[in-house]
Computed example of a mutant assay.
Amino acid sequence: MKKLFLGLAMSAGTLSFAQEQAASSASPVRFGLKAGLNVATISSDDAKAKAGIYGGVFANIPVAGNFSLQPEVLYSGMGAKNKDNPGIRLNLDYISFPVMVQYNIYPAVFLEAGPQFSFAIDKRVKNDTRSMDATRVYNGFDFGLGLGAGYYFEQGFGVTVRYVAGLTNIIENSQGDAIRNSLFQVGIAYKF
């Protein structure tokens, strides 16, 4: 619970910083929406990729020259399928708080990198007939590092891609090898 409050406080602080920057910056802060497809898996020998969705809001804050800071609040469906029995799925739903530093190579093209703080809102193992709560097995917090790129059209619409490598073990009280999330995102965004 403390980690959830920490994440919310960081987001609120970043967004209030964004409002201050808007008043003092020549380039205005732009807010936007984004959504798309997740292709997620976990670092386990019996796991294979599973499709999911993501969506949320962001603030793009110009900080210096071609650099900007982009905090986001996203719903993100992650997890994996069982390699031997694809009907068995691990569904991990998170509220994620990425904080990306973006560098504009050209006015419409950017590269980005930064941390992602994720808080689990649902953890379930499902098959075709049953859904089991996995809250006691999987941690409620995940920390990762994201790398991505994007292109914005003149009308404010853009396409984005991002890879997020999980850095923390998602298994509660694990005695063996660490199991980490791995996520590839492709989607669209719109800046107001």
Rank of each mutant, 00 (worst) to 15 (best):
K34T: 10
A108C: 09
K191L: 13
L92Y: 07
G144M: 04
T14H: 12
R162N: 14
G77Q: 13
V57S: 04
F117K: 04
S11E: 13
G158P: 02
N66T: 12
D46L: 10
F5A: 09
S174D: 15
N60R: 12
Y75C: 08
F58K: 05
A134N: 00
F58C: 04
V125C: 00
V186S: 11
V101I: 14
D142Y: 01
I170D: 07
R130W: 11
A189G: 15
G146A: 14
K81Q: 12
A12Q: 07
L33Q: 08
G187C: 04
T41D: 11
T129K: 01
G140D: 14
R124P: 01
A134R: 01
T41M: 02
Q155T: 14
I188N: 03
E112D: 10
K48M: 03
S174H: 12
R180K: 15
D45Q: 06
L92C: 04
G156T: 07
L6P: 00
V57H: 05
P115T: 13
G156W: 02
I42Q: 03
D93E: 12
E154Q: 13
N127M: 11
L145G: 03
V161G: 13
E112M: 13
V63Y: 11
A134E: 00
G166T: 08
A113G: 15
S25W: 06
S96T: 11
A189K: 13
F110H: 15
A64E: 11
Q116E: 12
M78R: 15
G55T: 02
V109H: 12
I171Y: 05
N181W: 02
I95Y: 10
M10E: 09
L69Q: 02
F157P: 05
G52E: 02
G79C: 06
S76N: 11
L33N: 06
A47S: 14
N104F: 09
R124L: 02
R162I: 08
A59Q: 07
L33R: 02
T129H: 03
R30N: 05
S11C: 14
L183D: 07
K191Y: 05
I95F: 15
S43H: 05
L74A: 07
K123R: 15
A49S: 13
A120L: 13
I53S: 09
L37H: 11
I121R: 06
G13V: 09
S27T: 11
F17C: 07
G65Q: 07
G13P: 11
N169L: 12
I95G: 09
G140V: 00
A47R: 07
S16N: 15
L69G: 01
F153T: 01
Y75I: 03
A22K: 14
G146V: 03
G36I: 09
L90V: 03
P98R: 11
V159Y: 03
Y54W: 05
A22V: 00
A108F: 09
Q70R: 06
D142I: 00
Y94C: 04
L69R: 01
F17S: 05
A189H: 10
A26R: 10
D128R: 04
T41F: 04
G87M: 07
V186D: 07
G56W: 06
G79D: 02
Y94N: 02
V164A: 06
A35M: 12
R180D: 04
G56Q: 02
F141K: 10
L6R: 05
Y106E: 09
V101N: 03
L167T: 14
E154S: 14
D45V: 04
K123Q: 14
F143T: 08
S96P: 06
M78Q: 15
L111H: 03
I61S: 01
K126M: 10
K83Q: 12
V137W: 00
